[in-house]
Design a protein around this nucleic acid. Structure first.
Lengths: 359, 359
DNA sequence: GTGAAAGCGCTAACAT
DNA sequence: ATGTTAGCGCTTTCAC
């Protein structure tokens, strides 16, 4: 129940002026104080249990040593490692983070970004931007540095740290092709998100390059990146009338949903249908059939983005990397096998143009 | 790049005094201002994009509308739902949360609690207390309200929200007993944590109640609640010389580790050995063999603790529930089967006293 | 019903 | 090398 110790208290206790005390406690301020005095003041401070009031100092200096972390949903296994990666570089520098979950709802995001701005965060690490994100534009108007990670914005040049999505899709699509698949469906992610969009584009362009017939590679875009959407849209693909032997899913959770639906329909993965994911989420690694997927660097993405933000914090004009692309890696496990019957052997009559939905 | 709008700016723009503007913007202050004036000021405020500076107001009022959330590790699937539960009650009330990860390292926890205190959090939700936690004692000295959840402290009366651990252990042990097991090992959690400790105590007392011979129910305490420790200590149990037909694990992650080790040793779950968990972590539900475990309420624990803290924030003298015990539920799945051969049929010569390790 | 003024705890420009 | 002073943006007591 002790009242909090302030600089004034330390001043009284040591006989020095508050400003002297302030200087003595300031690590980097190379204000010329006697070693002697500094030591003494620090000693008393720690004895009395002094802890700097960051509100007051922040009010004065305009730096709160607090940053905002915007994510879609901490419950999604993709994000906790990212958060720890961020923390691993920011915490040693004295920063704390306020984490908010947007659930990918723009109005919510807008409100939460205000919550952060009100609290004077020095910068924001944004892992939940929409391709076209109003709130980030507003942030820049307020001169709050932002770095996006995991996803990127378009048009506005905000530094971002992303995975090499295109290469990931290429690796997995080439792998499927190599196993003999020629009719491959794509369970695409939300098109309002760069991850969903870029992966779909890559699927199309790599498909063309491999000479896959677009009419034999149906795609459906989901509304969310989750299991339920995986179930729903996998059903849509199966019912679409275009036969295929493999489903390339835009992420692991969609793949999990797809596998669940396939099982319900009596199909076995990979015997009757090959399925691939994206992200290589840690908990998914333990599930059968072990998913062939693309590993992305979660912790490292957090680290990289935090480092860039740190640079920007030190110098807002710093010429930071505008686009950091993290390498990805194909992880081959058990959810892909050669097609039972080559799709091209099917009667042409069964073919219809693919149904494409945009979110 | 616009400078931030302050009350002073609004005062200038509306022709009123800052204090009037402040009052007009204060929701609950029923200071008698003309409806007219209030409306006008609010209008201008929103037009000019005013956002209250919480540093300044916090400095004045000693309330930051920010709370600290202390967890062991956000990467552990137990905690994200708890965090969302907390958020679900605090966010509508205008609170933001600073989340810190202690990794169950006391020095780290101590430092992080300081990080929170420096930033003037109004209260702390602590999901990572040690049974004997210094940092929480310090917090109380500073008159910062604390509610623990998931785990509890001993001795000091800090309000806590916990699961009905004892009942969970009872349910699962009775279930094993009912399936015919008489020689049951316990892979106990860290004894420095209430969860580890209470579950072990319950295991012993329910075991006695059921008439299980202690010499036939070996226990080992792990150092952490994770898979690697599950592997390590399951090996220790198997090599301990006391035969058993089931392993009751103190949580799901230990159970996962135990299952992995059993598999390595050529044992099949549940044919050769039954295994149970605790928590019913969402990602574990998808893993084979589907784990028989105890479901705890994660989101609800977060909610409950946040509500109690809220009460304390409104009135530090409020007579809040000191101990909220959330009900648990046995979830029977596929990791338990009757023992292949009754343990009691084994030669008594093979029996040695159990090896018990305390963390 | 509105204005004036003080001050939360700190830092930094300016004195000495 | 240390002290003085002003003020960050806000709330709140007191005055009118």
């Amino acid at each position: 129940m002790t009242k909090r110790v302030t600089l004034k208290d330390l001043a009284k206790a040591t006989g020095f002026h508050v400003s002297t005390v302030s200087r003595a406690l300031d690590l980097n301020s190379r204000s010329n104080l006697t070693e002697e005095v500094v030591r003494h003041i620090r000693e008393v401070a720690s004895e009395m249990g002094y802890r700097r009031n960051r509100l007051a100092s922040g009010l004065r200096t305009n730096r709160t040593m607090t940053i905002g972390v915007v994510i879609p949903d901490i419950t999604n296994a993709l994000f906790p490692p990212i958060v720890r990666g961020i923390e691993s570089v920011l915490e040693p520098e004295g920063y704390a983070s306020i984490i908010v979950n947007t659930d990918n709802v723009p109005e919510r995001e807008m409100r939460l970004v205000d919550v952060l701005a009100e609290r004077g965060v020095d910068g924001i690490l944004h892992a939940a931007p929409m391709r076209d994100d109003e709130s980030i534009v507003r942030l820049r108007e307020q001169a709050i540095p932002v770095v996006t990670l995991n996803r990127r914005m378009e048009a506005v040049p905000v530094p971002c740290v992303v995975n090499d999505e295109a290469r990931g899709i290429r690796l997995v699509l080439e792998h499927l092709y190599g196993e003999g698949h020629r009719s491959i469906a794509h369970l695409a992610g939300p098109q309002a998100l760069s991850t969903g969009n870029v992966r779909l584009e890559a699927f199309r362009s790599v498909g063309r390059e491999l000479g896959l017939a677009e009419a034999e590679c149906p795609t459906v875009s989901t509304v969310r990146f989750d299991e339920d959407e995986g179930v729903r849209c996998a059903a849509e693909l199966l019912d679409g009338g275009v036969p295929f032997t493999a489903v390339l899913c835009a992420n692991d959770r969609l793949a999990l949903g797809a596998i669940r639906l396939l099982r319900e329909r009596g199909l076995t993965v990979p015997r009757n249908m090959s399925v691939t994911g994206f992200n290589d989420l840690q908990p998914v690694r333990l599930i059968e059939p072990r998913l062939t997927t693309v590993r992305v660097q979660q912790f490292e993405a957090g680290e990289a983005a935090a480092r860039i933000l740190l640079e920007l914090l030190r110098n807002p004009e710093a010429a930071v990397e505008l686009e950091t692309i993290l390498p990805v890696e194909l992880v081959i496990r058990d959810s892909v096998a050669p097609p039972a019957r080559a799709a091209s052997a099917r009667p042409a009559a069964a073919r219809k143009p693919p149904r494409v939905r945009r979110a």
